[in-house]
């Protein structure tokens, strides 16, 4: 845990995820997603008090958990929820378009926001056995079609293996795949809106020739563009108004530390990333 007045990268990262949620959105995270899970509770307790928070594996509506556990369907995640959806209630709502945002990650993510959580090391799985069989996509390959907006994230951008030119396997569709664009496939959801990594934040072009392509918008202050370029498998496009990620507020940090006393968010980061700490300077600007 960081000292008062300072904070760690994992904390800042979760706050950055939380800020992609707008107030009054119906928001959902998949299981095995501690950063997104903590982020939703931070948003609910700060800038998005009227959001409907649907827990990823219990489908509890607006629970008030005493802590975030290391598993997605623990009873602690139902505490304080007046209503818990059934599995099918949630999926039906998402497919008919009543869910506004979902968080999605992947072992691989390409420049159009397609994600791979299925298999790595062969591009013709299942004909050829993969080098690594990942766990699988849960409900993503239907949910990604119709949910309003997707916030993607990865904590392994620096490895060079996470943001790739092409996914070996597309589990969940982003903006465009060899099968076509979202509109060509009749998908009503907006697709990936943000991609948050431990190096910076991307958005996706909404029009023109580059529609649906990722674009670097914000950097963490201890990272430069060349570091991002070297770690990114697709051609890096940088927004003309590239800026620094806004530091977390004291209120956001307090809520985050309160809701995640077990530090489950930290399980997503390498030891080196967890050593990145920041503090507020006298001018209120962030220093590394």
């Amino acid at each position: 845990m960081s000292r008062a007045g300072s904070f760690s990268l994992d904390e800042w990262f979760v706050v950055a995820l939380a800020r992609t949620i707008r107030d009054e959105e119906v928001t959902f995270h998949g299981f095995g997603s501690p950063c997104a899970q903590v982020a939703m509770h931070v948003a609910k307790r700060t800038h998005a008090r009227r959001m409907l928070l649907v827990e990823g594996a219990t489908y509890a509506c607006n629970p008030d958990p005493p802590f975030i556990p290391p598993t997605g369907n623990d009873a602690s995640l139902q505490r304080g929820a007046a209503y818990r959806m059934r599995f099918e209630e949630f999926f039906d709502a998402a497919i008919r378009g009543d869910v506004d945002r979902m968080f999605l990650s992947g072992g691989q993510i390409d420049g159009y926001g397609n994600t791979n959580v299925t298999a790595i090391g062969t591009d013709d799985y299942p004909t050829t056995s993969p080098k690594v069989k990942l766990g699988g996509g849960g409900g993503g390959c239907n949910l990604a079609a119709t949910i309003g907006h997707l916030t993607l994230w990865t904590t392994r951008h620096r490895s060079g293996r996470a943001l790739v030119q092409h996914c070996d396997f597309i589990t969940d569709m982003g903006h465009r795949t060899p099968a076509g664009s979202r509109s060509e496939l009749g998908y009503s959801g907006g697709g990936p809106q943000w991609l948050v990594t431990e190096l910076g934040i991307f958005d996706f072009d909404t029009e023109g020739d580059s529609q649906g392509a990722a674009r670097l918008r914000q950097l963490f202050p201890d990272v430069d563009v060349e570091t991002v370029r070297a770690a990114t498998g697709f051609e890096l496009r940088v927004a003309p108004d590239l800026s620094s990620v806004r530091p977390p507020s004291a209120a956001e940090l307090a809520v985050l530390r309160g809701i995640d006393p077990l530090g489950v968010r930290r399980s997503e980061f390498s030891a080196a990333e967890l050593r990145r700490t920041f503090s507020y300077s006298a001018s209120g600007r962030c220093q590394c």
């Binding site: 497919i95 299925t118 799985y125 996509g137 390959c141 239907n142 949910l143 990604a144 079609a145 119709t146 396997f169 597309i170 589990t171 969940d172 569709m173 795949t177 099968a179 076509g180 979202r182 496939l185 998908y187």
Partner: peptide, 9 residues
């Protein structure tokens, strides 16, 4: 089903 198209699933 509404989705699945565009996915290698």
């Amino acid at each position: 089903v509404r989705g699945v198209r565009g996915s290698d699933i």
